[in-house]
Amino acid sequence: MIVCIAVVGHQNNPLYIQSFTEADDALKLHHIVHCSLDVVDERVNNPKKSGPMINETFLGLLYPTENYKVYGYLTNTKVKFILVTTDLDVRDADVRNFFRRFHSAYLDAVSNPFHVPGKKITSKTFAERVSTIVKSVSFNTAG
């Protein structure tokens, strides 16, 4: 199950962090998302491995930590999507598909003329849409 999804701006500023757990672990998830930026930075700064997938937005598994796996996705505008999941056996294709849907939701949210780029995303519609996507995705069944 997806426990947290985050949007991080191109200056590594958090734009949207939403956890989907009942437990009071917001701080922990914040830490996980924050730490994952190290890996994203490293992937972005050392792109030599990404020869064939030069335009690949999906960063794949960033790192496993404790009980979680952290996946990343980088848009062309250097906005990062971070996914934290407790599912340990996940197919990349499913995550990729999830990110694609999430990306379109994000695009709709920032296309709002009242949204100021670089500011936190406060749109309720976006939040609802994200939770719908998160609920509809279940990696475990795929695995």
């Binding site: 200056q11 590594n12 500023n13 958090p14 701080l27 914040h30 830490h31 924050h34 670089g118 936190k120």
Partner: peptide, 16 residues
């Protein structure tokens, strides 16, 4: 400075 301004938004972590 710009970066530090941006990163200053992790207020949850920073306050902790």
């Amino acid at each position: 400075l710009v970066v530090s301004l941006f990163e200053s938004q992790w207020s949850t972590l920073q306050m902790v």
